[in-house]
Design a protein around this nucleic acid. Sequence first.
DNA 1: AATGAATGAGCCTTCATTCAT
DNA 2: AATGAATGAAGGCTCATTCAT
Lengths: 216, 216, 216, 216
Amino acid sequence: MAKPRQPLDAKRRIPRQARSGATVAAILEASAQILETGGLAAFTTNAVAERAGVSVGTLYQYFGDKTAILLQLARQEFDRALADVGQALQGEADPSIEGRVRAMVRAMVHAFRGRQRARKAVLQAVLAQGLGAEMMAPITAFIARTSQQVGRGPQPMLAALTPEQTFVLSRSLMGAIRAAVLEEQPFLKSRAFEDEVVRLVMAYLERITATAVTRP
Amino acid sequence: MAKPRQPLDAKRRIPRQARSGATVAAILEASAQILETGGLAAFTTNAVAERAGVSVGTLYQYFGDKTAILLQLARQEFDRALADVGQALQGEADPSIEGRVRAMVRAMVHAFRGRQRARKAVLQAVLAQGLGAEMMAPITAFIARTSQQVGRGPQPMLAALTPEQTFVLSRSLMGAIRAAVLEEQPFLKSRAFEDEVVRLVMAYLERITATAVTRP
Amino acid sequence: MAKPRQPLDAKRRIPRQARSGATVAAILEASAQILETGGLAAFTTNAVAERAGVSVGTLYQYFGDKTAILLQLARQEFDRALADVGQALQGEADPSIEGRVRAMVRAMVHAFRGRQRARKAVLQAVLAQGLGAEMMAPITAFIARTSQQVGRGPQPMLAALTPEQTFVLSRSLMGAIRAAVLEEQPFLKSRAFEDEVVRLVMAYLERITATAVTRP
Amino acid sequence: MAKPRQPLDAKRRIPRQARSGATVAAILEASAQILETGGLAAFTTNAVAERAGVSVGTLYQYFGDKTAILLQLARQEFDRALADVGQALQGEADPSIEGRVRAMVRAMVHAFRGRQRARKAVLQAVLAQGLGAEMMAPITAFIARTSQQVGRGPQPMLAALTPEQTFVLSRSLMGAIRAAVLEEQPFLKSRAFEDEVVRLVMAYLERITATAVTRP
DNA sequence: AATGAATGAGCCTTCATTCAT
DNA sequence: AATGAATGAAGGCTCATTCAT
């Protein structure tokens, strides 16, 4: 289970105590399946409870409301993807910046373990709920952190990014990937697409650096 | 029972051609106002009809269903923004590529004539509906067209973009702007934000060109 | 928009087996009352729910849609009438064929326990729904079964009826009674009417027998 | 066009003056077509007007309300069927009672000139509106008249029927045919079915006569 | 901790009918 | 006589959430 997070989410009415991991997992898995099969329209609390083999009441024992399930699911998959990135960076043969960027892009592209429909549905829900910012937070943090680490490396390539830069970088990157998911673009997992996204990020990063260097 | 309810006739859905422009405009304007005031939740057919000063029946005379209104509104504002871009490019004092890009970014940032809440709501609806691709089409076309024109200019900077490049360029650009709208970022209309978006686009464009040139 | 409306899941329609008998009974009784009082026009889901002392939601917990209530009500009263016929035949003092026919006619005439308006409304709905055949099935079966039993008796009066004969017999019999109900004929429960219906059936039955006998 | 009838129908709000036969015919034809194609559910005033090539307003010029169209259509076809019966009786080679009955049954079975779906829809509507009695009036009259004529013939077979007898005879006869139409029985136009209906009527008629004769 | 029957506000949509032109 | 845009009351139905057991 993902590490418990700080209550970023005010909607989870009453923070529950000791969660039965198995039940929560069953609910999330049921949600993913329903989303994958029937999209957002089929995602009702009753449907989830039934598929998970619990009662609606139990469902509300673990999740404050319907949105909380979606959010948890999104977070879980996000965290997994982020963990993948970390691992990729760790064992990366290519320690260059581009190598790292590529690893990250690849991880984000392959997030949600192949359940494209579910991913799309979760994305739609998150956006429709206006929860985009919340979901982006880890990514933003990750980028800020990484860019600083990069900056501290042997090649101090990056200065710390301004908030606007971090924003533009993270949202454009994720925007391209999200759009590919939402539009069900066939090239989502292609090398050509990956190349372009990497190119975008690298070009922007280098431009920022160059500018920063030039400035003084 | 008494009144059959199934939509046996798919044709009735077709929006009449002979639209009374004034009525349609009133409905769209009412929709924008309601969206701006109360968000998606307040956007009910009855509310729209009332605000527009027509009956629900009339509303259905011009729009197949509630979604159609939203879509039309989105399209209208999109087209307006696109037209603004065209105009900006026309009368642009700065004919450089960067000048053009900046004009375009500015037009997109200021789309929906300042109604940020309405814009956000429409965006959410469009996304939730899975209509993102459809809405992006004009932008994609615009970028493809513009980049070719640019390529034919005195400084043949751009080769024709590959589909993936067009996709990444348009979606990352719009992704950054959309995110700022959806997250209600205060810097949406700031110069700093505009600068970064422009920088992103320019960096990517130049990188593509350089690569293309280098390739042979 | 916010709440998806399409019935993606056909299974939700299936009336639950574990019906709380009391609730279902209350709904059916409320329906009969409303039908009796205000006819088909007054028969709305909200009205039924209110009269039954439950919420609309509960109503939909037990019945797939409005028609299902009507159908269930029709079936219930039909079954009751059929049971009455069976009982009448059992304890019939007069074991002659005419005695049996008369018992049956009487049971059908007095079906729906005196609620003529409700009966009419149900009949109209069933007819309008095109469910006439379905409702007639038990009657048809009953007649076929009974005629065979009669044939096996001490006076082997009846050969097995052909499908057309069974059809004509059951539909003409029910047609006369139904018409009297639908047209609200004052003589519905009169002895004269009963006599004529019995006469019709007996005349037809005897004619068939005679013909069958003559044939060889 | 059928001869204009006395205003049996209170619903036709304002009796219109000189009707344009062509328009009325077009409306009735359009109605029949729509009924045949889409059943009762597709039968809306707008649909009828469109198919008939007139405006809804015009439609209301000639018919007081929607029901009036249905009624007129039913009447028209009924009258036609009745006229057919009259003609059949006139030119009937077989002047026997059975010959006449058979001619009548045949005419009723073939009414509505093969448009079974439309006939079914009209029937449903008439029944659902509670207009069954009204529609049966001509039949009832016809039977009463015919049976008297028969009684006056060389073989004074029939005494005048009592109201109950006329009712049972007409409703059972029509009930069998109607049921075959409503249930879309394949044997509707078969000889076997016709035979049975004729047998039913004859058996009943003869039984009545015999009884009547015996009575004094 | 779990159950699941019950709740009910409120939405979308239809279509017969009118009436100003 | 004809038009057809506009009307608007009314109704079926959904589904997140609760709470007594």
